[in-house]
């Protein structure tokens, strides 16, 4: 943990402790410490300090968030092949499964990204909780979006969804009311989404993901220090637009399945 510079300080006064500041000046013979400039601490490895700072954690969240966003985009493009012949998406799934080590490297990288994203989020959330032990009796927000205030909710729910989603469509452990057929992506999707609550859960989670993205996509720039008086407002709008597109892209599939456009 941090060590702090030792100086002649008067904080006690404000913290209401019984310390009396009745002394005259510190004895000049030992006045050496007063003249010394701030003490320095031994050189630390920068990545450690960086990670320890809340700003550093936010950078980690931004970078890992950006990686996951890239995945989300790629995944959506893959999914949209559902609108083509079943062979297309099945071939695509086959292709992905046969990447071999590459697949495991990719999975490893994303797992690490998710882990770091979650770890940083949890640590920061705990920090914030400690920072306001007593809340307001009345609290009115005047300058923020719903999305930005609910990141700590939308995130975990999306995580729960991802786990469910992997169990359903990747591993096939949970596939209610139908038989999971390894390799037959198209039919797994159709049979999966024909169950109304699976679709509803999917749509709900994707909407939360969109909410999460609509703030995260903009906030990540802020965290890595990219802001511009004119571009930043545009970026905020762009984040919402992109998040909306992603939501629409994803949820169109269960909706199409439910409506019978995809059979």
């Amino acid at each position: 943990m941090c060590r702090f510079a030792t100086q002649n300080r008067v904080e006690e006064l404000e913290n209401g402790s019984s310390h009396t500041l009745r002394s005259t000046f510190p004895d000049t013979t030992t006045g050496e410490q007063l003249m010394a400039t701030a003490q320095v601490m031994p050189h630390q490895t920068d990545p450690v300090t960086f990670w320890q700072s809340s700003n550093g954690k936010k950078v980690v969240m931004a970078v890992t968030g950006a990686m996951m966003f890239a995945f989300i985009c790629g995944h959506m493009l893959g999914n949209l092949q559902m609108y083509e012949a079943p062979e297309h998406i099945n071939a695509y799934g086959h292709f992905l499964h046969n990447l071999g080590e590459l697949l495991w490297i990719e999975r490893g990288v994303f797992l690490l990204a998710i882990a770091l994203h979650i770890l940083a989020a949890v640590q920061l959330a705990l920090r914030s909780q400690v920072a306001r032990p007593i809340g307001y009796s009345r609290s009115q927000m005047i300058n923020s979006t719903y999305a930005s205030r609910t990141m700590y909710w939308s995130g975990p729910i999306v995580l729960a969804f991802i786990i469910f989603h992997l169990l359903q469509f990747t591993a096939g452990y949970i596939h209610p009311h139908a038989q999971f057929v390894a390799g037959d992506v198209y039919n797994n999707v159709v049979s999966g989404f024909q169950v109304w609550w699976v679709s509803a859960w999917y749509i709900f989670a994707i909407c939360l993901l969109g909410l999460h993205l609509s703030h995260g996509l903009w906030s990540m720039f802020q965290s890595v220090g990219l802001a511009h008086p004119r571009l930043s407002p545009l970026l905020r709008k762009a984040a919402v637009a992109i998040a909306t597109l992603i939501v629409l892209g994803y949820i169109s599939i269960p909706i199409s399945v439910l409506l019978g456009f995809i059979k």
Partner: peptide
């Protein structure tokens, strides 16, 4: 606590200091 770019600060700021300053700090 830490910043999560919510923006309430700049809304409450009596001098309406823009959120960009936080990005500058991060950079």
């Amino acid at each position: 606590g830490n910043c999560t770019s919510i923006g309430e600060c700049t809304g409450a700021c009596p001098k309406e200091i823009p959120l960009d300053v936080i990005a500058n700090m991060n950079r």
